[in-house]
């Protein structure tokens, strides 16, 4: 049974056992506009919670994507590197960025639930 958590930097992380899939939220994708480029972490790279993991760019904006939790990168989504439009089309599905082997699942406690994130967005 998977569970999705959110950061205040607009990343989502879906937990499946000890594997986490990371992407940017629909809100973030809409704010950026048409995504034209993503830079993804190499598998094997080890990331700390909140560390810079990826870059996402539209024509007039660019942003770092931070690791919602620490761990070792196990996969990067080559499909969005080839076709960045997938990030806008389906940011919380096919437009995922990378997968992690979770280091310390206690770090998840610092993240928001879907409901908390929705409230957070209302406050922006």
């Amino acid at each position: 049974m998977s569970e999705t958590r959110y950061t205040d930097q607009h990343e989502w992380v879906r937990i499946d056992g000890d594997e986490a899939t990371v992407g940017i939220t629909r809100y973030a994708a809409d704010q950026l506009g048409d995504v034209v480029y993503v830079e993804l972490p190499e598998p094997g790279r080890s990331l700390g919670q909140g560390g810079e993991a990826a870059v996402v760019e539209s024509v007039k904006a660019a942003s770092e994507v931070y690791a919602p939790i620490g761990g070792e990168v196990t996969a990067a989504n080559a499909a969005i590197a080839d076709d960045p439009a997938k990030v806008n089309a389906d940011p919380e599905g096919e437009g995922w960025f990378f997968k992690l082997k979770i280091g310390d699942s206690a770090e998840l406690a610092k993240l928001m639930s879907a409901g908390q994130y929705a409230d957070f967005l209302k406050g922006l």
């Binding site: 048409d34 034209v36 480029y37 760019e57 539209s58 024509v59 960045p84 439009a85």
Partner: peptide, 12 residues
């Protein structure tokens, strides 16, 4: 001389 240009395509 031109209508709006497709900057997304130019960058992709």
């Amino acid at each position: 001389p031109r209508r709006r240009l497709d900057e997304t395509a130019a960058a992709r």
